[in-house]
Design a protein around this nucleic acid. Sequence first.
DNA 1: TATAATATTTTACGCGCGTAAAATATTTAT
DNA 2: ATAAATATTTTACGCGCGTAAAATATTATA
Lengths: 343, 343
Amino acid sequence: MTVAKIKNMEDFAAVSGISRPTLSKYFNDPNSVRATTKLRIEAALKQHDYRPNVYAINQNRRQTRTIGLVVPNLTDPFFAGIARTLEGLILRAGFTPVLLSSHDGPDQELDNLESLRAIKPAGVLLAPLGRASDLAGVAAFAQDCPTVLFDSNLDGIGDAFFGSDNRQSVGLIVDYLCRSGEPPVFFEMKTPINPNAYKRRSAYIAAMEQLGHDPQLVQVEGDGWGFEEIGFRGGSKALTDRQFKTNTVLCSNDRLAIGLLSAAFEKGLRVGRGAGSALRIAGHDDHPFSKFTCPSLTTISQDYDSISTRSVETVLALIERGERAQSREAALFSGTLVLRGSA
Amino acid sequence: MTVAKIKNMEDFAAVSGISRPTLSKYFNDPNSVRATTKLRIEAALKQHDYRPNVYAINQNRRQTRTIGLVVPNLTDPFFAGIARTLEGLILRAGFTPVLLSSHDGPDQELDNLESLRAIKPAGVLLAPLGRASDLAGVAAFAQDCPTVLFDSNLDGIGDAFFGSDNRQSVGLIVDYLCRSGEPPVFFEMKTPINPNAYKRRSAYIAAMEQLGHDPQLVQVEGDGWGFEEIGFRGGSKALTDRQFKTNTVLCSNDRLAIGLLSAAFEKGLRVGRGAGSALRIAGHDDHPFSKFTCPSLTTISQDYDSISTRSVETVLALIERGERAQSREAALFSGTLVLRGSA
DNA sequence: TATAATATTTTACGCGCGTAAAATATTTAT
DNA sequence: ATAAATATTTTACGCGCGTAAAATATTATA
């Protein structure tokens, strides 16, 4: 630190003996200048502690180096974990992630996109709410800004979509449950907000029919996103009313399963695949807490490594090319069975 | 929308018939202009869809209207929930929140503060990692930017601190547990990263002694932030080794309790306050999932409404005054007992 | 060492807006 | 209706940096 304060790049050019345009080049890409000048600049940086003004930078650049990242709800540890992974990938690529949560609300989702519009991101990774999303609003945004959807698909919106192959994953766990005991009843919300839920329902039906079993749906009431609560209430009722035709229940997702598990416990039902158990319960998603439920939850782990890397790679490619995708890419990744205590 | 595209405020001044300086005033505070001109501007806005460039704005303003918000880890639903509350309060005050997660790492915590420095926030709300924090780094930041700490205190750092009165809350639950059964053993990590953990430990000891009981600590190994896993492993060992002197365990936080609950289940121990139960387990924090554990978790709910509002109010006051606090404010809020099935 | 290739410097302009001061218009009070 | 108070417009400058083109310096190639 010296006495004279470095206010801007010009000041820093003066004390470092490097011209301002060269400094500008350096800050945009340290390796775009000669190795010797790079060393000189970095030596000067250590002495004077100067940082370019991000606002001035972004005002003048043709394109910012920020990538927007919108998830349905950060309160859900599942999405919080994914967001963290994506942030890491974005940083590694030399971009700055801006993370926003839609708080399970379509209004907030649109607000988030508006906020992003204001900061002119180079691209956006969006896990939309799904059925609840304002399709026209999201589509309008995606038209103006390179947008890759993940987790939930919105037909035809965005440059690409990456998600899970629900047909495969649900088939996998239905198959396992049928082989290891009674065929599963499917436990879900009557009117899910998430498109994956619909895919999982039909995947369940298809898998059951293929195995020669009669599909059984138990659909609980409740709207909103308090899945655990909905699973608990609906599960309590279903158990009381003996709605489950077999002793095995496949839940549309882990959060519902956590609620159902809680309901079963309250009813004094022993859950698990042991001999003395009254009920088997399985979930889907490998929620961070599913390892610690009582009993631990047998579930499906989505291949979120692949989904994440492909999503980031794709948005980076779009940014690099500088033009929008001519055809909408879409890929589904396979899940794996996570065998635990509950089924 | 008209054919001519509005690129900047000057263009918009032309089509709206309002001078640019007046428009600037309007965008900084819509009520600072005459009501009639406000209407004219808003009518024009509906026709032309113009938004000021945030980068140009922030480059020229003496102060931005963003408030940084840093939490230890968004993957923890507890902090994700708090972050959401704080975001709402900040928005309501007319500021823009920028949410960052330290991912439980002191390096990331410093990185976050550096990122915030770059965007020159008007103020910052920081829930530090605690013992793991780079104290010098955080202190240096807090010196340059109005900073209010919450959740975990760092001695003398920041303009204010708001958190929970662990002495009160732990006293409350120890008291309850003693009245309703055997006195609790305290279950915690040997070397906690969080300062609250130390306060809770001594609060437990003090409360026990006051009630004439012998404090019993069961301290488990493990570092890092996988509290559930640590609670599970340590809990399994403690149960096997019969380390719990009584049938009642008070956990330092809910996440440890969730792990212990899982360990007890695996051991076939029935947890709860019923007659046939072998163990009572209580937690602290009212973690979002504590309602759905098996059995549901008796715990302490921190007064996060108060902590949140006071924190935001304080940082806003600092911003308003335009000068730093002359004396460091600190306040602790009382928790309440949440009676559920586990104890 | 001469030449070509590459980096850097110089010079100059523009980005979109905040902000200040003076001149002018509008509203409110008398 | 007139004067005073308040809003708006005009004019002008500055913020900190990107970027382009031409001139110059440095390095690599032969």
